[in-house]
Every structure is written in structure tokens, then in C-alpha cells.
């Protein structure tokens, strides 16, 4: 109970300070729009074959947009040495981490919900399956990206070249999660529902989330307190 309250306090704090400046969210949204437009030059957006990699396109955009938000997550605490005050408080490092992950999840999902309709319009696509199934896939995959990303935001917070290190370290780790998301999204943009073979991917996504959430929660204290 107390733990949950601590998580929410941290998440709420992060959301409030981000929404007040909107630095990361604005950058993330405009960046994803730019990539969406750039992709239209790389492929013929009106061609029928584009549908086959629409999921991939969308998730590459989300992954890029996510890096901008995740980079800020712990870097935000460096200003005025706020991280010290948080770590000295009785809040466990894992609650701090989960709170930040929740905030990042919500921010990134919001960016995705802006990017998705733009993508559908520009690429003449539509969601053939149910929106809520797609949203579920987005939430699961985004949580995967978020826990890994937030963990590495903590890992790289005191490093030189922080902004460069994060995407370099995080994208290879995210490959399985992105693959599952791409697979499922492509299906949902073209077919009414997931068949048994694709349910395996959904379970895989849940497994990825569970494994990396557990690892991050177990190790974040080691990373933050030296």
C-alpha cells in the first residue's frame, strides 16, 4: 500500500513537471511526425505492399520518439541534485524506478496515440482488428520499451555522452519486444483478429515485460546507489 503510494507520488511528480514544460513530449511528437514524413520518401506510401511493413514503420517511429522521453527521465533529476534528495528519502530505489516507468509509459502512450492517427491518414491505412486489441498490444510493448529504457536512463545518468549512450545500449536490447510489437501491429492493421500463431507473440510480449521488469526492479538499487 505504502509502496504503491510512493510509486504514484513519483509518477505524478514526473508527469506534472513534464506537462508544465512539455519539453520532452513536444520534441517527441514533432520528431515522430518528421520520421513519418521521411518514411513516405523511402517507400511508396500508397502502394499496397506498404501495408506489409506498416507495423514495422510505426514501431520504429515509436522507438525513436521514445528515446527522447526516456533520455529525460533520470536526467531531469540531475538539475539541482534532486536525485540525491530522492535517494536519501525512505522511498526505495525500486519504487522510484517504477514511478518513473509509469510516468514514461503514460507520456509515451500519449505520443503514440497522436502518432497513430497521423500514420493512418498519411499511409492510407486503417485498423481492421479491434482498436482495443491494438491498444493492448501498444500498451504491452510500450511498457517493455519503457522499463528497459528507464532502467538505462538510470544506468547512464551520471555518464559522459549520456544522450548518445542510451539509444545505443537500449535498441539492441529492445529488438525482441519491437519484433513482437511489429508482428502483432501489422496483423491488426490488416486482419480482423489474431490467430493462434499470433497469440504466441502476445504471450512472448508479456514474458518480455515480466522478465525485464523483474530484472530492473532487482538491480536498480545497485545502479543508483554506488
Amino acid at each position: 500500500m505504502r509502496y504503491a503510494r510512493q510509486i504514484l507520488t513519483v509518477a505524478f511528480k514526473d508527469l506534472r513537471s513534464e506537462l508544465r514544460t512539455k519539453e520532452a513530449v513536444n520534441a517527441s511528437v514533432s520528431f515522430s511526425l518528421v520520421i513519418l514524413i521521411l518514411f513516405s520518401f523511402a517507400f511508396d506510401p500508397s502502394a499496397e505492399s506498404t501495408r506489409e511493413f506498416s507495423g514495422g514503420l510505426l514501431w520504429i517511429v515509436f522507438a525513436f520518439a521514445g528515446a527522447l522521453i526516456l533520455n529525460r527521465s533520470f536526467a531531469r533529476e540531475l538539475q539541482n541534485d534532486c536525485l540525491d534528495a530522492l535517494l536519501a528519502s525512505p522511498v526505495p530505489a525500486s519504487a522510484l524506478f517504477l514511478g518513473k516507468s509509469v510516468a514514461n509509459l503514460l507520456l509515451l502512450l500519449a505520443v503514440e496515440l497522436v502518432g497513430l492517427p497521423v500514420f493512418l491518414v498519411f499511409y492510407n491505412a486503417r485498423i481492421v482488428g479491434s482498436f482495443w486489441t491494438l491498444f493492448g498490444v501498444m500498451a504491452l510493448a510500450t511498457w517493455g520499451l519503457t522499463v528497459v529504457g528507464t532502467m538505462f536512463s538510470a544506468l547512464t545518468v551520471n555518464l559522459r555522452l549520456r544522450e548518445l549512450m542510451l539509444p545505443m545500449l537500449v535498441y539492441p536490447l529492445m529488438i525482441p519486444c519491437l519484433m513482437a510489437a511489429i508482428q502483432l501491429t501489422t496483423v491488426l492493421l490488416g486482419e480482423p483478429s489474431l490467430d493462434a500463431g499470433q497469440m504466441v507473440w502476445l504471450r512472448f510480449l508479456v514474458g518480455f515485460d515480466v522478465i525485464f521488469t523483474a530484472l530492473a526492479v532487482a538491480l536498480v538499487d545497485t545502479v543508483l546507489v554506488g
Binding site: 529488438i175 525482441p176 525485464f212 530484472l215 545502479v223
Partner: peptide
């Protein structure tokens, strides 16, 4: 000391990812 700590954590994450990558790519 910080380098050792940070990279040990990274190594654990990377190794956890190896089998996941393997299976996902195989299915893919």
C-alpha cells in the same frame, strides 16, 4: 568502481536478452 557496477548490470541485462533474441528471431 562505478564502471564495474554499471557494466555488470548491463552484462546481466544483455545475457537475459540473448535467449529471448534467439527465440524471437527464430519464430520471426
Amino acid at each position: 568502481t562505478q564502471r564495474a557496477r554499471v557494466s555488470a548490470v548491463f552484462s546481466i541485462f544483455a545475457f537475459a536478452d540473448v535467449p529471448i533474441v534467439w527465440f524471437s528471431i527464430k519464430w520471426w
